[in-house]
């Protein structure tokens, strides 16, 4: 098996079609990476707010218990 191109510059030029080939691969990876990043960011922000809510609930419970003990 041999490389289809003799040099890197030929590889990047892709004949006369470099623009189309490379922008296609850019679209492919760009959109997929964007989807992953956006979804990950949304999930992380959900996780953050949910953890905060959980900790607030815990503090509230502890506070209520300490009030009961004092009475």
């Amino acid at each position: 098996m041999n490389w289809a191109f003799d040099s890197w510059s030929e590889f990047f030029a892709m004949g006369k079609h470099g623009l189309y080939v490379w922008s296609s691969y850019g679209v492919f990876f760009g959109l997929l990476i964007l989807l992953v990043l956006v979804s990950y960011g949304q999930f992380k922000s959900w996780q953050k707010t949910e953890l905060k809510r959980l900790q607030r609930l815990k503090l509230q419970k502890e506070h209520e218990q300490s009030v009961k003990k004092q009475q």
């Binding site: 892709m14 004949g15 006369k16 079609h17 470099g18 189309y20 080939v21 296609s24 691969y25 492919f28």
Partner: peptide, 11 residues
């Protein structure tokens, strides 16, 4: 098609 056919590998 020359090298433009290489788009097939993602299309």
């Amino acid at each position: 098609q020359g090298n433009s056919f290489r788009i097939i590998y993602i299309h």
